[in-house]
């Protein structure tokens, strides 16, 4: 078994018309044993900028700590809000520094840019950035999520439609993955506000 599957996770980010959605499952396991059903893997960085960290839980937490530290330092040094692409390259660099002893985590960034354009970016565990016009997925349910998202995503969805498409993609994907699930959290980011939905999911 791969170490990235030790704790279980599923994260999806999707773009819409002037909005983005990022969501995750809530399970924390130790292989087949479920330890926590309230373990969120998507973190708020700024008002319109979120980062999802699927992978080994200890690295998810260490990386989140380090991202928070670096973003706070950026705030103090640059005196301006960090933009999604800046954050993506910052995290990518942090990961590539550990090229030969990586963190087992494949971060996903979702947010709105200065001009309120949707931005999503994914990367592998050593920081190779990969962008997509539609969606980025990660975690143990990523194969399932690819399938769901390819079917459900369509261009220019509004926040409500996008929320439903992303939520259904996530919920249905984790239902076919033993390592993730136990409910989900979805953040819908629009220029005015971010809505956070805690979803009902299967408890098995």
């Amino acid at each position: 078994m791969s170490i990235t599957q030790y704790n279980g996770s599923a994260i999806v980010a999707m773009t819409g018309k002037n909005c983005v959605v990022i969501g995750c499952d809530k399970r924390l396991g130790q292989q087949a044993l479920t330890v926590d059903m309230n373990f969120e893997k998507v973190f708020r960085v700024k008002d319109k900028l979120y980062v999802g960290l699927p992978g080994l839980a200890t690295d998810v937490q260490t990386l989140h700590d380090r991202i928070r530290y670096r973003v706070n330092m950026y705030d103090l040094e640059e005196e301006r809000a960090i933009q999604p692409d800046n954050l993506a390259h910052m995290i990518s660099n942090m990961l590539y520094q550990k090229r030969f002893g990586p963190y087992f985590c494949e971060p996903i960034i979702a947010g709105l840019t200065e001009k309120d354009e949707p931005y999503i970016m994914g990367m592998d565990l050593i920081g190779c950035l990969s962008s997509a016009p539609d969606f980025i997925v990660g975690g143990t349910a990523s194969d399932n999520l690819y399938g769901m998202c390819e079917a459900l995503w369509e261009p220019d969805l509004g926040p409500d439609d996008l929320f439903r498409s992303a939520s259904q993609a996530l919920l249905n994907a984790v239902d076919r993955d033993a390592m993730s699930g136990w409910g989900a959290v979805v953040h819908v980011i629009t220029p005015e506000k971010t809505e956070t939905y805690h979803l009902q999911g299967r408890q098995d």
């Binding site: 008002d47 319109k48 301006r80 809000a81 200065e114 309120d116 929320f163 439903r164 939520s167 259904q168 919920l171 409910g183 220029p191 005015e192 506000k193 971010t194 809505e195 956070t196 939905y197 805690h198 979803l199 009902q200």
Partner: peptide, 15 residues
Amino acid sequence: VSVIRKEVRYHSNAN
């Protein structure tokens, strides 16, 4: 989609 709980966070003055 069945929602258990919803939170809204309004953004402060852009950027």
